[in-house]
Amino acid sequence: MSSTNEVEDAVAQLWQEHAGAPFPAGLAGAERAGIDLVLLDADIAGCVSSRQNSGGFLDAGRRRILDARTAELERILPLLGAADGAPYWQRLYRLARLVADAGE
């Protein structure tokens, strides 16, 4: 089992990587399985950003959003290929899961 510090370090690193990465080219306005990819990214990033800016706290509303959007991302990950910037989405998923699991 990972220590709290290891989890926080991993979240901080993934968040820094994600925040510095460009959104995958050509996906603005794209949907997969009816899910708008820009909104999916923005919702998860917003929840992570709020958590990071509040010292690790995620309020109930953002927690519900994070859980719902993480489930959607998990559902569409198998549909995302190299042209969709799959590593971008895989990193976002790892980040979302770490944040969600840290709050349990």
Results as ranks from 00 to 15, higher is better:
residue 76 I to T: 00
residue 26 G to P: 09
residue 66 L to Q: 00
residue 39 L to K: 14
residue 70 T to V: 01
residue 77 L to R: 06
residue 68 A to H: 04
residue 7 V to Q: 08
residue 13 Q to P: 05
residue 34 G to Y: 09
residue 68 A to V: 04
residue 53 N to S: 13
residue 9 D to H: 02
residue 30 A to T: 09
residue 78 P to E: 07
residue 50 S to T: 05
residue 77 L to W: 02
residue 87 P to E: 13
residue 56 G to R: 10
residue 10 A to I: 06
residue 104 E to C: 02
residue 18 H to D: 12
residue 58 L to G: 06
residue 5 N to H: 07
residue 48 V to S: 04
residue 55 G to S: 06
residue 5 N to K: 11
residue 91 R to L: 09
residue 36 D to V: 01
residue 18 H to L: 14
residue 98 L to P: 04
residue 50 S to K: 04
residue 39 L to P: 00
residue 100 A to C: 04
residue 8 E to A: 14
residue 35 I to T: 10
residue 5 N to Q: 15
residue 96 A to Y: 00
residue 46 G to W: 00
residue 61 G to N: 13
residue 83 A to L: 12
residue 97 R to K: 13
residue 59 D to M: 07
residue 17 E to Y: 07
residue 72 E to I: 00
residue 12 A to D: 14
residue 57 F to T: 08
residue 91 R to S: 06
residue 89 W to K: 04
residue 93 Y to I: 05
residue 104 E to S: 12
residue 87 P to T: 09
residue 62 R to Y: 07
residue 97 R to G: 05
residue 46 G to I: 10
residue 35 I to V: 15
residue 48 V to A: 06
residue 104 E to Q: 06
residue 60 A to Y: 05
residue 103 G to C: 08
residue 81 G to H: 08
residue 33 A to Q: 15
residue 75 R to P: 01
residue 35 I to G: 05
residue 47 C to P: 02
residue 6 E to M: 09
residue 65 I to L: 14
residue 81 G to R: 13
residue 91 R to A: 08
residue 89 W to P: 00
residue 41 D to G: 01
residue 72 E to Y: 07
residue 35 I to A: 10
residue 24 P to C: 13
residue 64 R to C: 04
residue 62 R to H: 11
residue 47 C to S: 14
residue 20 G to M: 12
residue 70 T to K: 06
residue 15 W to N: 11
residue 59 D to I: 08
residue 67 D to L: 11
residue 64 R to Y: 04
residue 100 A to K: 06
residue 67 D to S: 11
residue 11 V to K: 05
residue 16 Q to H: 11
residue 5 N to T: 14
residue 28 A to N: 01
residue 1 M to G: 15
residue 31 E to N: 11
residue 68 A to L: 14
residue 22 P to C: 06
residue 43 D to I: 02
residue 68 A to P: 00
residue 23 F to Y: 15
residue 85 G to A: 07
residue 18 H to M: 15
residue 61 G to A: 13
residue 11 V to Y: 03
residue 20 G to N: 15
residue 83 A to H: 05
residue 29 G to I: 13
residue 61 G to H: 02
residue 79 L to G: 01
residue 34 G to P: 00
residue 83 A to S: 12
residue 104 E to L: 07
residue 40 L to H: 09
residue 24 P to H: 08
residue 32 R to G: 01
residue 56 G to T: 03
residue 39 L to I: 01
residue 26 G to T: 13
residue 26 G to S: 12
residue 68 A to I: 00
residue 96 A to L: 02
residue 27 L to P: 03
residue 10 A to H: 03
residue 45 A to H: 08
residue 61 G to D: 13
residue 47 C to H: 02
residue 34 G to L: 06
residue 12 A to C: 13
residue 69 R to V: 02
residue 96 A to F: 01
residue 63 R to F: 05
residue 77 L to S: 07
residue 84 D to V: 00
residue 92 L to T: 00
residue 101 D to H: 03
